[in-house]
Design a protein around this nucleic acid. Structure first.
Length: 589
RNA sequence: GGUUCCGUAGCUCAGUUGGAUAGAGCAACAGCCUUCUAAGCUGUGGGUCGCGCGUUCGAGUCGCGCCGGGAUCACCA
């Protein structure tokens, strides 16, 4: 069954066409003035400009051309030439009935499913996950789930930073610290120890010091560069040590990401594309795509219509080692060879915009990426502290992701105790609930703000459990679940909707019906905040409805049945949308 | 300096991609728990959409110019 808005659009596209105008003006949208109508078509106004006619005349013609149908109850012209559409309650009910009976809530699978690789997360090995990593993880996860729900074949890849200069820094500084380790003995040819020479905590400390040193000490920086080159060049001991470092980092990351319910299909990294680099370089060379500039090997990516100078795409540094741009290009090469995707999305901070512009141009110009491969940088805003600078704890260090999440979960736990509804819950259940509530607060707050906007990281914002928050959504969902549970316990059957009896009931019904539009818009613009806004409004409406109509004590059985259906459908939509946002819902809280 | 993003209620943000009377949350104030979860609901106050000009029947949304803020501009990622 087609969404009502689609049916109406079809009718008006035809009507515009039959009245002698371009059908494109027939798009119908949800009304912003609900007290006047349910839907509106503003095409007559835009058409008036092009056809140089009075919009009212166009609207009149169009309305009289609308084919007879069973959907519309009334159309009228308002204001300058708006076509206001009121639909029949029976149609609304029929559509909701369909949504409620369908596993996919009436959302059809995309007719042209795409194979999409989403590159998100992107943490660096040895560098602790901190609050700056949450946006990519949360946004990428939501986009992955949304695309998948709409029928696309999606592969989520964490794309670890495991191959750049930071690895050289760690190896060089470890070598200085413990030169006796077998990894540094070039004549060593035995088995390297099973145990990692460093713990994750050591590693993070080494990284932090090494990174400071490299910034101030030129000698250390050149040692790090040398180690990077030798690692990439295949020095056996370095490779073995590197493997250990990567492994313990991954273990630590998995724990962090699983706390956030972020799951990657692939745990690939920059290093995985390394084996493709020789063929990539060879390909670029024989086709004359590269040239030497200031000792480095680069690809020219300028285009005639450029308004400003773009730096060339760096392929090999003057010291002979490769860098992130090289691995990014060879990763495209690798992904095409291994997965042949239709699209590759990069969910990365918007500060890297120039890099991706260069990368995409380089890939196209060298014909590595064909014109049919869609490459997109899904940029998001920078996260700042209250002072407009990166978020810091009181002692000045960046807050660890794990500590941060844990503190939110603790607050959620305290809230459960404070509210006192969970007195008879086991400690375990209380813990599970506080995790879900805490994570919902964090994820909802993150997804709610438009991805392109910078945002101020305010810890209070994430520990807010009232108002427009994740916990409010969970609370509403749980409240509905409780009603449904009681109905089932009392063996009340409910399958049929009735036409709405009150304004609030109709509002709720119309909102439920918007789901299809919301999900498709969110997908089109890669904006999960649209889903958040939608389920929040839906919850507001449901809660109003809940307070106005007492469902279980309703004496008219068919009325009670209808309200239970309405509740059930609201619940399903909330759970589904929350799941798309990567948020789990408890049974009670 | 070039490029680019942002500026909406006291604070944090939406705003259906040009539509009718700009909406939420927090904060403030006044109400609602012997009926389905009060992490809730109802109501009140709060706006020069940074400023100006332009395009248009219509501009928070598009264009230009200012003012203010951020990001970025090849061997880091």
């Amino acid at each position: 069954m087609k969404p009502i808005i689609q049916e109406l659009s079809d009718l008006f596209v035809t009507a515009f066409h039959d009245a002698g105008f371009d059908g494109k003006y027939g798009d119908v949208v949800i009304s912003q003035r609900r007290e006047l109508c349910h839907f509106q078509c503003n095409g007559a106004l835009s058409a008036a400009k092009v056809y140089k006619l009075n919009p009212n005349d166009i609207a009149t013609k169009v309305i009289s051309s609308v084919k007879p149908n069973l959907i519309i109850s009334n159309t009228s012209i308002a204001g300058a030439g708006f076509i206001n559409i009121v639909i029949k309650d029976e149609v609304l009910v029929e559509y909701l009935q369909f949504m409620n009976s369908d596993d996919r809530l009436g959302i059809s699978l995309d007719l042209f499913p795409k194979k999409i690789i989403i590159d998100y997360g992107g943490p660096n090995v040895a560098k602790p996950l901190h609050v700056g990593h949450i946006r990519s993880a949360i946004l990428g996860e939501a986009l992955k789930r949304l695309s998948r729900f709409l029928g696309h074949d999606v592969i989520g890849d964490i794309h670890l930073g495991d191959w750049g200069l930071q690895m050289g820094m760690i190896i060089a500084s470890l070598q200085q610290q413990s030169p006796d380790l077998p990894y540094f003995d070039e004549s060593f040819n035995g088995e390297y120890p099973e145990e990692s020479p460093v713990s994750i905590t050591d590693l993070q400390e080494i990284y932090s010091n090494a990174s400071k040193d490299a910034k101030t000490n030129i000698e250390k920086l050149s040692e790090a560069r040398k180690a990077t080159f030798e690692l990439q060049d295949g020095r056996v001991g370095y490779r073995a040590l590197w493997k250990k470092i990567v492994d313990i980092s991954i273990t630590d990351m998995k724990a962090n990401y699983s706390l956030l319910d972020v799951e990657f299909d692939l745990w690939k990294g920059e290093s995985d594309s390394h084996e493709f680099i020789p063929q990539l370089l060879n390909y670029l060379q024989i086709n004359n795509y590269t040239y030497k500039s200031e000792g480095a090997s680069v690809i020219d990516i300028r285009e005639d219509q450029d308004k400003h100078e773009l730096p060339p795409f760096m392929l090999i540094k003057s010291d002979g080692s490769i860098l992130y741009s090289t691995t990014d290009l060879s990763t495209i090469w690798e992904r095409i060879k291994e997965y042949d995707p239709d699209e590759i999305w990069y969910v990365v901070d918007k500060r890297q915009e120039i890099h991706f512009t260069q990368l995409f141009r380089a890939a196209r110009k060298t014909k590595i990426a064909s014109n049919t491969l869609h490459l997109e940088h899904i940029a998001f805003g920078t996260m700042n502290g209250l002072d407009g600078r990166p978020y810091k704890t009181r002692d000045g260090s960046v807050m660890r992701l794990n500590d941060f999440i844990q503190s939110i979960i603790d607050k959620a736990y305290n809230r459960i105790i404070e509210v006192g509804v969970a007195k008879d819950f086991s400690v375990n259940e209380k813990r599970e609930i506080s995790q879900m509530v805490g994570v919902s607060a964090l994820k909802f707050a993150d997804l709610l703000s438009h991805r392109l906007k910078d945002y101020i990281f305010d810890i209070d914002k994430f520990t807010e459990f009232e108002g427009k928050t994740g916990p409010y959504l969970l609370y509403t969902t749980v409240r509905i679940k409780s009603i449904i549970r009681k109905a089932i316990e009392n063996e009340i059957d409910f399958t049929c909707f009735q036409v709405p009896k009150s304004f609030i009931e109709r509002e709720l019904m119309l909102k439920l019906m918007e789901l299809d539009d919301v999900l498709n818009q969110a997908f089109k613009y890669k904006e999960p905040n649209q889903i958040c806004e939608y389920i929040y409004t839906l919850s507001l409406l449901f809660n109003s409805f809940y307070h106005e109509h007492h469902i279980l004590s309703e004496t008219d059985n068919s009325q009670r049945e209808s309200w239970l259906c309405l509740s059930r459908l609201t619940e399903k939509i909330l759970v589904t949308c929350l799941d798309i946002c990567g948020i789990r819902t408890p049974e009670r809280m």
